[in-house]
């Protein structure tokens, strides 16, 4: 990441444990719980948001090493959330992975243009999710 030299933005007292913190943004409850169970098992700390606006709020409220963002969500979709976050100086460097049901190359391009570092297509197996989380969160300036 180009901003890798900037210092981590962890607020005081925000104890970092394990492999880092991941924000999961998805409107589906089973999906969020699944990501949580897989990522916690891999040593990450997980926080959830249920749509793009809430994801943006949570990303502002505390620091994350990775955001995993669904594309189709109410209020603010994943692309719109990433576009908004990428213009925010405090958040532009947080790595992001999008997850969608659409497998076409055009959608992949749309995700990357919106500011995703990586994209996954549903259904996502636990092994694949863990590997990608480790790889992309590993780029985080921590």
């Amino acid at each position: 990441m180009s901003n890798a030299s900037s210092s981590p933005r962890h607020p005081q007292g925000d104890e970092v444990s394990g492999r880092g913190r991941i924000l999961v943004v998805d409107d589906g409850i089973t999906m969020r719980l699944y990501y949580r169970s897989v990522l916690e098992a891999a040593g990450f700390e997980v926080e959830e948001a249920t749509n793009g606006v809430e994801g943006y709020e949570k990303a502002l409220a505390s620091a994350f090493d990775l955001m995993i963002v669904d594309i189709n969500m109410p209020k603010m979709d994943g692309y719109a959330m990433l576009r908004a976050i990428r213009t925010d100086p405090a958040l532009c460097a947080v790595p992001a992975v999008t997850i969608s049901t659409e497998a076409s190359e055009r959608d992949a391009q749309q995700a990357l243009r919106a500011g995703a570092n990586f994209y996954l297509v549903k259904p996502v197996g636990s092994k694949e999710l863990t590997e990608v989380a480790l790889m992309v969160a590993g780029r985080s300036p921590r």
Partner: peptide, 8 residues
Amino acid sequence: ESMSRISP
């Protein structure tokens, strides 16, 4: 309250 439930 949060605007996230209401409007983008």
